[in-house]
Design a protein around this nucleic acid. Structure first.
Lengths: 217, 217
DNA sequence: AAATTTTTTTAGACTAGTCTAAATATTTAT
DNA sequence: ATAAATATTTAGACTAGTCTAAAAAAATTT
């Protein structure tokens, strides 16, 4: 059984390691959790003793199989709650992140089972991110960030990476939400801003925004 | 802003003081929270500094106006979540207490507003207990415990006091749920057990059970 | 290859909440 | 009214999680 803080560390490590694929550095964790490297070192030791990560001094951290499963459970809960908040309680997609950060720590497997059923077993959350099933399996939809593509591309929006409320409000305003058809018209070499088309309307978006939009590969 | 622990103390004090009516002793709080009197003394000092209770050494604790409001907010959240779990997620009424104990600490006024609306502003929870509205107002349904009444009484069940899962399962089995019509047929002087009638079926219940059933006055 | 910079770890201190054991106050019984 | 019992508080210690400052290791630059 993990404490709330331990769960947050595990989740951060999962995201920073691209789902457990690569090792994560102490400083990366510290930055992501807005804490200090010294605190991270301490927590890493604790998590290591609990066998949810493996840890080598001055090297970094990798999730163990068990750690990965636990991280996926937390992410599953987070995304199911976000889905509930948007679909059932009429939250807008930019309002749900902070609340879901709290709800994801509620301990009750039965609750999550029943919530999943209530929502008819959704496969993606309101931001297009996949929801792990109860065994931790994720259905990955192949995607690339819009910033990696060249003019001429046609496809549709899969997901939005960042949960920042201002970004989400902006994307909502220009109609850039998961499922929408999108065309890449042009690219400005000077600042890498993109000219895109959404439902026959052309919009220009900055590089940083384009890096947060995932589209069909 | 209160910590989770502080919220639990406040809630315990609210219940033990009959809604803020009377002073509560250190030992009562300790017993109710399964902690030690010394810990209670420490916490009492903290809550006192925060002006949510008033405290006199060797005397006890009373809720301040602000403390009462905060306690009611927590109770409102608890009972709304219980209602959600039973009505929407198909929990049985004996399964909801522990989960609601966690959910009641989620901090988001918007969430509670939306949940209340989603549930169509319920006035009582699945156990018949009244749900405070957003201003902390409670609609009290006049009631007495079954144990106080004499044979010949006819009325209906208002609420069940204890949240113990085994009690609730038992009451469910004999059909003693809020709203049900009930008659008091007889009383056994030796052990104060009662003969009652629920939907034309006679059942005998023990004194301790009768003390937990609230019926219309 | 040595010097410098960056990253990570250790050492020691702090807060919230808890505990045990001892001291003190209050209540109850004689 | 005094003794005994009970309740409450204080004192000091412990854990989880955090921090700053200093030490140590690794990476980078020259």
């Amino acid at each position: 059984m993990l404490s709330l803080t331990e769960e947050n560390y595990l989740k951060a490590i999962y995201h920073l390691s691209d789902g457990g694929a690569k090792a994560v550095l102490t400083n990366e964790i510290a930055e992501s959790l807005a804490t200090k490297a010294a605190s991270v070192t301490d927590m890493i030791k604790k998590l290591s003793v609990k066998n949810v990560i493996s840890y080598e001094k001055y090297y970094g951290v990798k999730l163990s199989k068990q750690g990965k499963t636990l991280a996926l459970t937390i992410i599953r809960k987070h995304r199911l709650w976000e889905t509930f908040l948007v679909q059932q309680l009429n939250f807008s997609w930019d309002e749900v992140h902070e609340v879901a950060e709290q709800l994801e720590h509620i301990q009750s497997p039965l609750l999550i089972e029943k919530l999943d059923e209530f929502l008819h077993y959704p496969s993606v959350d309101p931001h297009g991110e996949p929801i792990p099933d109860k065994n931790g399996k994720i259905k990955i939809q192949a995607s690339v960030t819009l910033s990696e593509l060249a003019p001429g591309y046609k496809g549709s929006i899969v997901a939005v990476k960042d949960s920042d409320s201002n970004l989400l409000k902006y994307l909502d305003k220009i109609g850039a939400t998961p499922g929408k058809k999108i065309k890449l018209i042009g690219k400005e070499e000077y600042d890498d801003s993109l000219e895109i088309e959404l439902e026959n309307i052309k919009v220009s978006i900055s590089k940083i925004v384009s890096q947060n939009i995932l589209v069909t590969a």
